[in-house]
Amino acid sequence: MAHDTHKLEIFRGLLKFKSNEQKIWGVLIFLSIVTTVEVVLGIYKPEFLNAKIIGMKALNWIFIILTLVKAYYIAWDFMHLRDEKSSFRWSIVLPLLILIPYLTFILLVEGSYIYDVMKTGLLSWDF
């Protein structure tokens, strides 16, 4: 990475920093806010967020989305993927984006299948 080639905008250009150092502090503040929101939601667990969306609580979806947001800013700004060539960026991110959701989908479906079998099967698992 050559000098002075930092991309200094985050939020799609909504926020533009004067120097790389400033951008780092800006991202830190953003990550801290997101973490605080997560912790507050985790402690109070608002009742209305217990509604299920696609088999999972709305609250859990919020946690997962916020985590992915945090991961994006850590990878893009702290690990400065934003400043890399886009071919390099995608060769790193794409394998993970394809393989991890794939594995997650398979194993979670399998897990709930086993739960059903144990629940409705003829064996007693709690004796």
């Binding site: 993970l96 393989l99 991890i100 594995l103 194993l107 979670l108 399998e110 897990g111 086993i114 739960y115």
Partner: peptide, 20 residues
């Protein structure tokens, strides 16, 4: 990252298996 996701997904698997 794939190793860690293996761990975390295995956690999810066991949790779904004993979801109740």
């Amino acid at each position: 990252a794939l190793t860690f996701s293996g761990f975390l997904v295995a956690y999810g698997f066991s949790r779904y298996k004993f979801i109740e």
